[in-house]
Amino acid sequence: MRIFLKSIHIALKVNLAYPRDYLISLVIYPFILILNIHLFTSIYAYSEVSHIKGYSLSQMIWYYGATTFVWIFIFNFTDRRISNYILTGELGLRLLRPVSLFQYEMANAIALRIVGILFEFIPGMVIYSLIYSPNFLTIASLLKFFAVVALAFVLNYVLNFIIGVTAFITQNNAGFKRLMGAVTTLLGGAMIPLDFFPGWLQTVCDYLPFKYLFYEPVRFFINHGDISTAEAFYRVIFIDIAWIAALYIIAKIAWKLMLKNVVVAGG
């Protein structure tokens, strides 16, 4: 555990070596939000309704802001880092340390997200709230969101780890990563809320892990009516944990199998 904390500490220092980078991304947020305000205000006014598919105007406006925030919580590039280790031969060095790559990369991903939360989520949240008030937010909903998004982070990390391990076969997994990126954003609900999908596609999404990356955390963020019960909350938490456990086992098996055939590049 101490080694885990120390790794986080070091990764934090590395990521904070160039802090100005993060502040630049803050400039973009207001533009996206203002665009959404105009778009959805006119859509809601035109349809003369207060809710579309259960979303109020402010929830809909915030939906895309919320996907950005979920991104900030769950993002990591473990997949790319692992394929880089394989391509550059640095994997050798990693394997020669008495810390598993899974743990090491997890510490790095957590550190990266702490920096993201400090420099992107908190200021972003302040900026958004000043422009358009998040009137749906309660303390309870926010706490539930944190719980769900923390699990989404772990889920995304395990998925990325598996994609990274596929680089053992393909050497370079850029194509596969792009495919996975498209699938996650689309079937995960980062592009459009899943409620707008046809019924059969929604059923497909129910059986895939991707909606637990974006769609569910976003719904908890905007405090959607469907998930306000305690039962709904526990259901999501339970499915999250089940997916994490299943994918973790797959990741471990894949890692063991691949390690047998690994060729560490370079002399």
Binding site: I10, K13, V14, A17, E90, G92, L93, G266, G267
Partner: peptide
């Protein structure tokens, strides 16, 4: 282990 051609030190720290 030491690999003369690969570094295990953190570049920025």
């Amino acid at each position: 282990v030491l690999f003369g051609q690969k570094s295990q030190l953190w570049w920025d720290l």
